[in-house]
């Protein structure tokens, strides 16, 4: 079943385009990572899906409804980011009670156990928590709500490394017990890549990639050797990026190499390996060549 579907969706803020011509389908019970550089349009996309903002053009459907002012979408989704604001007079346990009233699948016991584990006192107030603890509390709410559509916009901001790892593990365990559609955004693809099935890359206000994380990784190959060697071996191949690494060159190329071609690379002493997911992502979103070095070479 398709949970989110977009056809030629665009979003403008007054006359400035934030997202342009998005067409995508996200299926039920898939965990999708949303990545893109600063200002690429991730938050705008997530807020539109949650129904907080209205698409300027195109057709956006969530649970087969326009999410803007939809009670169905509101009741079946939760949007978590680092700007969650709660009534200042309420203690955390009172907030949990309210979530319990609102979200049909809310698991109070899980919420309380996670609060204990992360040492967040039920009696404290949200605004008195540290930045990391505030994010952790928000993340706990996102997990315990068990919403059919769960959206986390940079949930780990401010969390320390241990808390981040614990968050992703808690999310994954609860997802296995109670599958749901999850959208996760982060600046750090590496910290969330293991729990993802799919990746949606937003670049320059458009969708640059949507598909499985392994397909993206395997679509590229990293070659290392001298630039003469590499030029000779990449005739007719599509070169995505070229970087100087010490005395060697590293070229990331589109991977349409056959086994025989790769064996030939080995024979010539050209190191050829699958790229990391992060490098594949960077190859898609970085300036075509040179990158930051060009700024200093002017």
């Amino acid at each position: 079943m398709t949970v989110i579907s977009m056809k030629h969706v665009s979003k403008n803020y007054s006359r400035i385009a934030a997202l342009t011509d998005l067409t995508v389908k996200i299926e039920e019970n898939v965990i999708t990572g949303i990545v893109g550089r600063n200002g690429a349009g991730k938050t705008t996309l997530l807020k539109m899906i949650a129904g907080f903002q209205k698409a300027t053009k195109g057709e956006l459907r969530v649970f087969d409804e326009n999410p803007f002012r939809s009670l169905l979408v509101s009741a079946n989704s939760i949007y978590i980011d680092d700007a969650m604001s709660y009534p200042g007079s309420m203690k955390l346990h009172e907030l949990l009670d309210e979530f319990n009233r609102f979200y049909a699948n809310w698991n109070e016991e899980l919420a309380v156990r996670l609060m204990e584990y992360f040492s967040i006192p039920l009696n404290s107030r949200h605004r008195f928590l540290s930045k990391g603890k505030r994010s952790t509390f928000n993340a706990i709410v996102g997990i315990a709500a068990r919403c059919p559509l769960t959206i986390f916009d940079e949930p780990t901001t401010g969390m320390d490394t241990a808390a981040r790892n614990d968050f992703y593990r808690a999310l994954l365990k609860d997802y296995i017990a109670f599958p749901r559609t999850i959208l996760l955004s982060s600046h750090y693809i590496d910290e969330m890549k293991d729990v993802l099935e799919d990746l949606l890359v937003i670049h320059r206000k458009r969708i640059r990639y949507h598909g499985s994380i392994s397909d993206l990784q395997e679509a590229h190959l990293s070659l290392r050797g001298s630039s003469e060697q590499l030029s000779g071996s990449t005739l007719g191949k599509i070169i995505v990026s070229k970087t100087t690494r010490g005395l060697q060159e590293e070229w990331i190329v589109e991977n349409d190499f056959s086994d025989a071609e790769r064996a030939e690379l080995n024979r010539q002493g050209i190191t050829n390996t699958t790229v990391s997911l992060n490098d594949a992502y960077l190859a898609l979103t970085e300036q075509p060549r040179g990158g930051i070095d060009d700024v200093f070479n002017a």
Binding site: K193, D194, I213, S214, Q217, E218, S222, R245, E250, T271, T273, T274, V275, S276, L277
Partner: peptide
Amino acid sequence: MHDVDGEKPIYIQ
């Protein structure tokens, strides 16, 4: 530095 072995997709690992 880059890992010389690259990084295999998780399902292959």
